[in-house]
Amino acid sequence: MTTLETRTYHHGDLRRVLIEEGLELARAGGPDAVTLREVTRAVGVSPNAAYRHFADRQDLVRAVAADSQNALAKAIAARVEATPADLSPAAASVERLRRIGLAYIQFAREERGWFELAFAVQDEEPSVGIVTLDDEVVAPFQLLLDALDGMVAAGALNAARRPAAEWACWSAVHGFADIAVHGPLQWQPPPVIDALAAAVVEAAITGVRGTDAPV
């Protein structure tokens, strides 16, 4: 047993160390880079040590994906928390949804590996209409649900238009993010992508609300 393996077992944090190494691998190479062989090699422990914490590679990938989702949620939350305080409740609720979309796209562009991994795995049989991992709603998706519910509460979104609105928003924003990262937009100057991202997010908001009238 290596010195690091002894130390991590002593402190009970080898699982955490392996996940963090998986995050570093995913950040550079996406989901395919996260393997038990590579994380144990990088950490300096035997593969058998990893199997005491993860049943197989998929188990490891799920754990790393959960952290990737949390990183995305943190980036979104930071942008949402910066919503101007002088807006009306209705305008603020719309602005929060706008910021969620823009933060999602920005994260995809800045953290491609984590973005690719974040939704590479999820529960195969969740409750209808939600996205879960290990029976918990994934954090970025919960932020979107909360923002849309907040719009209804603030009078910025008709309750009749609320059902499935998260899927319309997510489809538009995720589709654009994928095009920006992997498609023809990846070669465009950042200001061009920024402008197009803003247009897509506005279109998604307009489509969900059913109006382009100001709040």
Rank of each mutant, 00 (worst) to 15 (best):
V173A: 07
A103E: 03
T132Q: 07
V94N: 05
R112S: 11
V17Q: 13
D194Y: 05
W187Q: 13
D56I: 08
S171W: 01
A108Q: 10
A198E: 11
L60C: 01
E111F: 15
Q186W: 01
V208F: 05
S68A: 15
A204K: 04
A213N: 09
E202W: 04
L143Q: 14
V80W: 05
A147K: 05
L36W: 00
L36P: 15
G150M: 05
L14R: 14
W170V: 02
H182Y: 10
K74W: 11
V39A: 03
A66C: 00
V128H: 07
Y51D: 03
A177K: 03
V201S: 02
E95H: 08
A42R: 15
G210Q: 06
P89G: 12
R109M: 10
A92K: 15
L36H: 05
S171M: 01
A91F: 07
I179E: 12
A26N: 05
V215F: 14
Q186C: 11
L185N: 02
Q106C: 08
D86M: 08
A50G: 10
A153V: 12
A90D: 14
R41Q: 03
A28M: 06
G210A: 01
V94E: 13
Y9D: 14
D135C: 03
T35F: 03
A160W: 07
A33K: 02
L18C: 07
E124R: 11
A73C: 05
P84F: 06
E95C: 05
L145V: 04
A82F: 03
L148Q: 08
D32T: 07
L25A: 01
L25G: 00
A63C: 08
R7N: 14
R57V: 03
A160T: 14
A118K: 13
A180C: 01
L133K: 08
A120S: 14
C169V: 12
D194K: 12
V34T: 05
T6L: 11
T132P: 00
W167I: 04
H53L: 04
Q58S: 09
P31D: 05
T6C: 08
H10E: 10
A147Q: 00
A154Y: 08
P126G: 02
V80F: 01
G22R: 01
T35C: 03
D86V: 09
T211Y: 09
W187F: 12
H174P: 04
G150Y: 06
A65C: 07
A118L: 12
L23D: 06
G12P: 08
Y9W: 13
T132C: 08
A204D: 02
V192S: 08
A42W: 02
E38C: 01
L145W: 00
L157A: 10
D123S: 03
I205P: 04
P47Q: 07
E20V: 03
L144E: 10
L148E: 06
D194R: 13
F119D: 13
P89T: 15
Y104P: 03
A156Q: 10
D86T: 12
V181C: 12
A65R: 04
L148R: 07
A160Q: 14
I179Q: 07
V39Q: 08
A213L: 13
L145I: 07
V138H: 07
N158W: 10
Q69W: 09
W187I: 13
E125T: 14
R57G: 10
A103C: 00
E116G: 15
A120Q: 04
D134R: 04
G150D: 08
R109K: 11
F54N: 08
L148Y: 02
S46N: 08
A91L: 09
P214F: 10
